[in-house]
Design a protein around this nucleic acid. Structure first.
Length: 700
DNA sequence: GGTAACTGGGTTTTT
DNA sequence: CCCAGTTACC
């Protein structure tokens, strides 16, 4: 191990070194895709430590748990003591850590429930009727829409009337009711010890703004490093501001062309505003791309949206060459040597052809020596790979899928979480509701009656279980009492492993009775209980599960074995920050890429462009784009004369000029004329029906 | 009265 | 595949 200088700065290029060793005021690192952003951030943390900043006084804020884990693992010196650790995690995880440590000061029960967006919608659904938002009139917003509006108001610090007017105009008649609903929602959460994702941020911000708590909380840190700053929302930007008033000790890393979370209230304007906020802001640009071959970078630079003052053009380092890369370089022809293979746009007859084409190219790569995990298929929305997944299975190509449906959304997993939440926070009415209804014979009405008898907002509801059970008809009472008896016992225990074990055994019978495939589900729950057992408390286990849900049940079982080799299917959002030698981008067809849901506003279309930029820049060596020309259940919009629907308008002609175009072989039917066969079968069957009306064959 | 079983229509992206 | 709305059954 090397010690001393160049130490932290070893192996960095000039710009990276300037960023890592920046002294004094606030710093913005404008880092294009693949320019060594993570490496620079890790180096900066190491450099700060060499300057005498204790690791425990450095805070690293990221957007995903994976990014945090990755950086913390690289930033921790091998000889570091456990106590000598950088604070690192997502905004939400760090907020939780602080709130949990001071739960009493925040007037929260020690094991308060952190609820996910699905829970938020459930709560709003129960409150909706009292606020004249029931769906008898067709136009009343549904629970999920109410939840979207709520979180948008909070995360952009915008009044409900304004949000509705700008983004939900069809709800304009309900602004007053929504306001009332959201007020009631806040009271409801307080009464039942519920904290949603937005609350985590709001509570942290409020504490930082408090005259007494604020100085203490921001005094915990000498340096704050924020990754993906283009994806902060108004509350997060405010948290950063209050952590580092004046900007001293602040490092933000970001790229406004990669802002893809506007739907969550994020706004790249916060990054752009940094310069105005901090007059002494230093800006360092990282433009040397270490990831992609030059042919791919040409396309990336062509589609990259440029914003005045933050322009950035990536230059290639993997293909040393005389000419500068830049916008317009896409005119270079396919004979151009040393730039890698040009991106290929594969025109496919339909979606099935596209699926076959992707499989064929994946297998080609595999035969050429690539592992499956060196290739990724990136989609705009999780459902876009449905047909492909069938084709992959049929051909025996192993794959894992990230994004889309998550393990914690499976019904039995929710059941387990509900049971655990009843134990940890008996005031949690959502958890009670779900747990009670898990039992055969209990629906919404009986569950509600039991919960009323429990008086959840009063202290110690578990002590009233005996009386509350009398609300149940004798037929169902024994089963529910058996479950609750065990959960009440679990609540009285200390060790997390014991609690998790009893919760699991309490669920055994109701889960077995409810689900046909109970054995597989119980195996999932066993893994869940095992994972929970290793956490410091049931509360910690539940929060981790909520803030960072495992993508699959096997995820929970631990690291995949080293010899396992899977093709990766991921949403573009989930692929941010990652890279693969070969990337496949399917569904470049009207309504899918760009998504027609996003095109109603100019801001939405701009975000679709940024998403495409993110997708393109994931590829190291080879990029395949697939344009199916027709899809089932989907009308093709008017073609723009190039045979791609609106695609060439979306990407621009210069982007298409960066690609080679290939035609996928059209599907050829194995049996050309099936109709006569159907008639033959029809006649055969008609013989079975008797001879009375055999004039017209039945057919199939 | 209350629950379960059936049916038909619709599906972005995630901490 | 999930939700809402409806019908059938206890």
């Amino acid at each position: 191990m090397t010690t001393g200088l160049p130490g932290a700065l070893a192996g960095l290029n000039d710009e990276q070194r300037a960023a890592a060793a920046h002294q004094g005021g606030p710093l913005l690192i404008l880092a294009g895709a693949g320019t060594g952003k993570t490496r620079t951030l890790v180096a900066r943390a190491a450099w700060l430590r060499e300057q005498g900043v204790p690791a425990s006084r450095i805070l690293l804020l990221t957007f995903t748990r994976r990014a945090a884990d990755d950086m913390l693992a690289r930033a921790r010196p091998p000889d570091a003591a456990a106590a000598d650790r950088i604070w690192g995690g997502t905004f939400h995880a760090i907020a939780h850590r602080i709130i949990r440590a001071h739960a009493e000061s925040f007037a929260l029960p020690p094991e308060f429930s952190v609820i996910d967006p699905a829970d938020v919608a459930d709560v709003l659904d129960t409150l909706r009727a009292e606020h004249d938002l029931v769906g008898t009139r067709r136009r009343a917003p549904r629970a999920a829409a109410c939840a979207d509006i709520y979180t948008r108001c909070v995360n952009t610090s915008t009044p409900v009337a304004k949000v509705v007017k700008a983004s939900y105009p069809w709800c304009a008649d309900f602004v007053a009711q929504l306001g009332g609903l959201f007020r009631a929602y806040g009271a409801h959460k307080r009464a039942h010890g519920l904290v949603d994702f937005d609350d985590l941020l709001l509570l942290w911000r409020a504490a930082l703004a408090d005259p007494a708590a604020g100085p203490a909380l921001r005094g915990l840190f000498d340096a704050v490093l924020v990754d993906e700053y283009q994806d902060v929302n108004a509350v997060q930007a405010d948290i950063v501001r209050r952590l580092r008033p004046g900007g001293a000790g602040l490092t933000c890393v970001g790229d406004d062309a990669q802002a893809i979370y506007a739907f969550r209230g994020a706004d790249p304007a916060h990054l752009r505003d940094l310069a105005g906020e901090f007059p002494d802001l230093a800006v360092v640009r990282l433009v040397r791309n270490y990831r992609s071959r030059r042919a791919i970078l040409r396309l990336a630079n062509t589609v990259r949206p440029q914003h005045e003052g933050l322009e950035l053009t990536l230059t290639a380092t993997r293909d040393a060459g005389p000419e500068a890369d830049g916008i317009g370089a896409g005119v270079t022809g396919p004979g151009d040597r040393g730039a890698g293979l040009r991106p290929v746009l594969v025109r496919c007859h339909d979606e099935a052809t596209q699926a076959r084409e992707i499989c064929a190219r994946v297998l080609d790569g595999h035969e050429a020596g690539l592992r499956f995990c060196d290739q990724a298929v990136l989609v705009r929305a999780a459902g876009h790979s449905d047909l492909l997944e069938i084709e992959l299975s049929a051909r025996g190509i192993p794959f894992v899928k990230y994004g889309g449906l998550r393990f914690t959304e499976a019904a039995h997993v929710k059941d387990f979480i509900a049971a655990a939440r009843v134990v940890a926070n008996p005031a949690d009415n959502l958890a009670w509701f779900r747990l009670l209804r898990l039992h055969e014979g209990i629906g919404p009405v009986l569950a509600r009656r039991v919960m009323d008898a429990l008086a959840l907002t009063e202290p110690a509801p578990l002590e009233r279980w005996g009386a509350a059970a009398d609300c149940l008809p004798p037929r169902v009472r024994p089963a529910v009492s058996a479950t609750l008896g065990q959960l009440i016992a679990a609540a009285g225990l200390e060790r997390t492993a014991d609690r998790a074990g009893i919760i699991l055994s309490a669920l055994h019978d109701p889960v077995s009775a409810r689900y046909a495939d109970a054995a597989a589900r119980l195996a999932d729950l066993q893994r869940l209980a095992d994972a929970a057992a290793s956490r410091p408390s049931l509360h910690e286990a539940l929060v981790e599960l909520t803030l960072d849900p495992p993508a699959s049940g096997s995820d929970l079982a631990g690291r995949p074995r080293i010899d396992d080799d899977f093709l990766v299917i991921s949403t573009v959002h989930s692929a941010k920050g990652l890279e693969w030698p070969v990337v496949h981008l399917p569904q470049l067809v009207d309504g899918f890429v760009p998504s027609d849901m996003a095109l109603s506003t100019p801001a939405g279309e701009a975000e679709e462009h940024r998403l495409f930029y993110v997708a393109v820049t994931r590829a190291r060596d080879q990029l395949y784009l697939y344009a199916p020309l027709r899809l089932h259940h989907h009308r093709m919009a008017r073609d723009d004369g190039h045979g791609y629907g609106q695609l060439s308008r979306f990407l621009g002609a210069s982007a298409l000029a960066c690609c080679d175009v290939e035609e996928a072989a059209p599907p050829r039917p194995l049996i050309p004329h099936l109709a006569p066969l159907a008639q033959t079968i029809g006649r055969e069957l008609d013989a079975l029906w008797g001879a009375d009306t055999a004039d017209t064959p039945t057919g199939i």
